[in-house]
Amino acid sequence: MKKNKATAALLWTAGVVLLWEGVAFFLANILHDKMANAKLPYLHSIIYTIAANFSEISNAALITVSKAATGFALGAAAGIMLAVIMSISKTAEKIAFPYLIISQMIPVLGLAPIIFNLVRNMDLSRIIIAAYLTFFPVAANMLGGLKSVEPEKRELMYSYAAKKRSVYIKLMLPFSLPYLMTGLKIAAPLSITASILVDMLGSKGGIGVKLLYSLYGGEKDIFWASVLVCAAIGMLSCFIIILAEKILIPWKKTSSGGEE
């Protein structure tokens, strides 16, 4: 069953690649669109460009990713901390919870240029924006996890007269781990997006800068290469979290073991 799904996904990916090449061919050779190369160049030619400029592009991507990762780590840590504080203190929860809800309704990324303008330091603002975009989904999901611990599970700890510290280490935190991972899965591509956005708002040396310069400078090949790399690192960030989830949460596997 699992193998089947993998082949289906693989075939679909192949289908998307073929479709891309097909549309590119259609634009260039049948519609004779003069902008064909700008609208959708052949996928293989983009990959060729990436390979040809590999060190340049990968360096730029690395800058963007490393800043995103720093911000992501900071934001996640802050989010987890706030969630834990909210689960301990009713007052803290009352104060912060409505704002966490509201944060999910407003376009937070809109604030990015403002923060960039206030901080005036591109590396720092990359980190701050990535951190604060990570913060909200992580805090909200983590709190959701902490609050869904079944009362019986807590009563068990109570019956052993366990200390608050042990309750958190042995029960609350491991229980919330799957919820935390959901939050991280949402946040990871967001932090990459944030980092690229700050690149494009006027930094030096990130993949977003490559994208912007090539967009206005007319280097179509580099532009498409950058776009593809951006998409790839976004997906990669998500994939890493999924992988981490598989490793960290082995009990989620529902393989049937024992029947009496």
Binding site: L11, T13, L109, L197, L211, L215, C230, G234, S237
Partner: peptide
């Protein structure tokens, strides 16, 4: 279900594409 689920996987990969990379493409289209 046999083939459709794979399509879902491909679509969900779209979720991870940064908006900022999409905007310039749409600019051209």
């Amino acid at each position: 279900p046999k083939w459709g689920y794979g399509g879902l996987t491909v679509i969900s990969a779209f979720n991870a594409i940064p908006i900022v990379a999409l905007s310039p493409i749409m600019n051209r289209w």
